[in-house]
């Protein structure tokens, strides 16, 4: 464990807590893409299957349970909680996210580090995570408002993956044999997808005005 990875995990944890806070306290999911949340639930479900078969550390297992629990409860809130479901803008959240799942699955079947059931699903979860934010970014462009908890959520989510890239660079230089091109490329693509969001997010801070 290094400081970049710990900071990345904490930023990722903060992103889901900010979202849960928003949904639970103000009973609203306005501006939040249910489709992105569903993709994240699939990402965690397919990535953490090894929670039953391999034990890395208490921290690792604990965090996996937190991410699984939070992502599924956010989907539950947005789908089935009466008050929250009412605030979900279904007409705007229309990105065909199932079109993302199949290509990621095919790609994982073609490009992986080891052809085993767990490893292919793990690789699939990496590819899916890289593109899972797309429905949320599209929704954000439609609702044209980053000045709220959803904006903070996306900012933290992008920040976590950026910190992971620093973690991979650090591990590459400090650990022999630490080479994982698939993880690195998927992580880089994911972070690049946030580039324009970060641009407008920082503009908003510098300009101090609502950014269209």
């Amino acid at each position: 464990m290094n400081i970049f990875r710990l900071a990345g995990d904490m930023t990722h944890l903060a992103s889901v807590l900010v979202l849960l806070l928003k949904i639970h306290t103000i009973k609203s999911c306005a501006g939040v893409s249910l489709r992105t949340q569903e993709l994240y639930a699939i990402v965690f479900a397919t990535r953490y299957l090894d929670i039953f078969t391999s034990f890395v550390s208490v921290y690792n297992t604990f965090m996996k349970l937190v991410f699984l629990g939070s992502s599924f409860s956010i989907v539950w809130y947005m789908r089935y909680h009466k008050a929250v479901h009412r605030t979900y803008d279904r007409e705007q959240d229309t990105f065909r996210h199932w079109f993302l799942v199949l290509p990621c699955l095919v790609l994982a079947l073609l490009i992986h580090e080891k052809f085993t059931f767990l490893e292919v699903l793990w690789t699939f979860s990496l590819y899916l995570e890289a593109v899972a934010i797309l429905p949320q970014l599209v929704l954000l462009q439609r609702t044209r408002n980053i000045d709220n908890l959803t904006g903070q959520y996306i900012f933290l989510l992008g920040g976590y993956r950026g910190l992971y890239i620093l973690n991979w660079i650090y591990r590459y230089f400090t650990e022999p044999h630490f080479v994982h091109w698939i993880t690195w490329i998927a992580g880089l693509v994911q972070t690049l997808l946030y580039a324009d969001f970060f641009y407008y997010y920082f503009l908003r801070f510098i300009g101090g005005r609502g950014v269209e």
Binding site: R5, H12, D50, S54, N60, K64, Y164, N167, H180, T183
Partner: peptide, 10 residues
Amino acid sequence: DDEYHEHDEL
């Protein structure tokens, strides 16, 4: 050595 690495990251 191509020992199978365990995914130790989240």
